[in-house]
């Protein structure tokens, strides 16, 4: 069984980049200086991941899971909305009736700096974080992004789906089938992961496994691995370190869940964070990622 490690969605910005974004907002540094701070942070993140097969730029310049799409489409970021049960907020995107499309190549170069694994909102979560956006429109938008990224070396796509699992919404999940099939058409050889977090994935798994995905991601701060069934030929992405808490995991704390997950004989395992890492300060996030590498290598 192959065991990989990966980031999960948006990663923590380093303290120097944090300071640079603050300074830029207060007109204390230039755009060039801000971009240099981003480049330094991307480099550090690249080094952290090393030669891991699943690499991401950590979405360091994403303000939230949907904001970059405002720049692509002209959607209007609305008021702050609480991001589930966290002390973090996002802006609901208001899509106008007539969407204006920007240049995808420039947009993708800005928001996917490097990597082999891309994190995108799942079509359902995308519609829940927006107004005026149908599932079909969200899918069409994501299809173009996926089609653009595949020839540029992205072979694994994680569609972030916190809404369906938080709401326990099996119906919404089932309705994702045609959307994911549409995405499949432009990336037939890519690995698709549907990543749940902020809720117990077990009650939804029978529906999730009916979708055209290679793996399902589960948040182990909410989900009991023993309750998971994994069909033959499918993989699991295990959110096995808690990215909402700074306490560093030890091998003893994760051992039972890891053994249980292996006993389900998934085709592959991706060890990752329970949710986005950006809920943690950078040093802590880095330490948790290194721990993932350590347990992946320990066999």
């Amino acid at each position: 069984m192959d065991v990989f490690v990966s980031l999960n969605g948006m990663y923590s910005r380093g303290e120097a980049l944090i300071q640079a974004t603050r300074d830029f907002d207060r007109n204390r540094i230039s755009l060039e200086a801000l971009e240099a701070a981003y480049e330094a942070d991307y480099a550090a993140l690249r080094e952290l991941q090393g030669d891991a097969p699943l690499v991401s730029d950590g979405l360091l310049n994403w303000q939230d899971l949907v904001r970059p799409f405002a720049h692509l489409t002209g959607a209007d970021p609305g008021p702050l909305t609480r991001y589930f049960e966290t002390n973090t907020f996002y802006r609901v995107l208001h899509f106008p009736k007539a969407v204006t499309w920007g240049r995808l190549d420039e947009w993708a170069a800005r928001y996917f700096r490097f990597g082999t694994m891309a994190f995108l909102p799942s079509p359902y979560t995308f519609t829940r974080m927006a107004t005026g956006l149908s599932l079909e429109d969200a899918t069409a938008l994501l299809r173009d992004v996926v089609a653009h990224l595949v020839p540029r070396g992205f072979h694994t796509f994680s569609f972030q789906e916190p809404f369906a699992v938080y709401e326990g919404n099996a119906q919404a999940l089932a309705a994702l089938k045609p959307a994911l099939e549409t995405l499949r058409e432009v990336a037939p050889d890519a690995r698709f992961v549907l990543t749940f977090y902020f809720g117990d994935a077990a009650p939804l798994l029978s529906v999730a496994w009916d979708l055209p995905v290679d793996a399902v991601g589960v948040d182990l701060t909410h989900t009991d691995v023993a309750a998971l069934d994994v069909p033959q030929g499918r993989g699991l992405m295990l959110g096995i370190v808690d990215t909402t808490n700074s306490l560093l995991e030890t091998p003893e704390v994760v051992q039972e869940a890891l053994n249980l997950a292996r006993s389900k004989r998934p085709q592959f395992l991706i060890l990752s964070g329970s949710a986005d890492f950006f809920f943690l300060p950078r040093d802590v996030a880095d330490a948790k990622y290194r721990f993932l590498k350590q347990i992946a290598n320990s066999g």
Partner: peptide, 15 residues
Amino acid sequence: FRGHVRSFDNKYYRK
């Protein structure tokens, strides 16, 4: 204190 975490956009708080 463990460092800064993001609240929204480029706003952070020390946690």
